[in-house]
């Protein structure tokens, strides 16, 4: 059930190694061909996808709830939400457990790449995107070497009406 523990620990040790004060740490993950990054401090842990209990009459991207050490955590599939990547579930499917706005939420992505640090100068303003992701959920674009990362304001996104995860905004 918790084969991904090792992976999780590896991430944690990585986090503790980086530490320059000006830079912010980001966790990067992929959805289809695109590479995204979120603030590392919002990430609680990374685990595999299993034992999800479906909830009736929910939007299709809300996969259901899982038991995370005694607490009930909803799981959303970002691949379905943003229509990116192949929606398959196997041992390689990765769930990023986020801790945002005093809630714990699991987010399914195609894969977790690495933890990077970006300073202000490496973050460019985000251009208008179009329909997939409203710019209000974007912090900007991170440029590191020749990679381009889409920086998501994950707290804002997860508490948005669009994700249907928070009480007041349902219906």
């Amino acid at each position: 059930m918790r084969d991904n523990k090792r992976e999780n620990e590896a991430e944690n040790s990585f986090i503790s190694e980086m530490g320059s004060s000006d830079d912010n740490g980001y966790l990067t993950f992929t959805l289809g061909e695109e590479e995204y990054a979120i603030d590392i401090l919002t990430v609680q842990e990374i685990r595999g996808y299993d034992a999800v209990t479906t909830i009736a009459n929910m939007p299709d991207f809300i996969k259901g709830v899982v038991n995370l050490r005694g607490i009930i955590v909803p799981i959303v599939d970002m691949r379905i939400k943003f229509n990116l990547g192949d929606v398959t579930y196997n041992e390689m499917t990765v769930v990023i457990i986020l801790n945002v706005a005093n809630r714990v939420v699991g987010m399914v992505v195609d894969g977790v790449s690495d933890v990077i640090s970006l300073n202000e100068s490496q973050i460019k303003e985000a251009p208008e995107f179009g329909a997939i992701l409203d710019t209000q959920y974007l912090k900007g674009l991170g440029v590191i070497d020749d990679r381009m990362l889409i920086l998501i304001d994950i707290e804002n996104l997860m508490t948005s009406k669009e994700m249907a995860l928070v009480e007041a905004l349902v219906e």
């Binding site: 059930m1 034992a51 209990t53 909830i55 009736a56 009459n57 929910m58 259901g64 709830v65 899982v66 038991n67 005694g70 607490i71 009930i72 955590v73 909803p74 809630r103 714990v104 939420v105 995860l165 928070v166 009480e167 349902v170």
Partner: peptide, 21 residues
């Protein structure tokens, strides 16, 4: 509700012996 919201016709959840919700 702790991490999600109320669901119609569902009053809560529990964890079964096999760890599933």
């Amino acid at each position: 509700e702790t991490n999600f919201h109320t669901v119609p016709c569902i009053s809560g959840a529990t964890i079964m012996g096999d760890g599933k919700v």
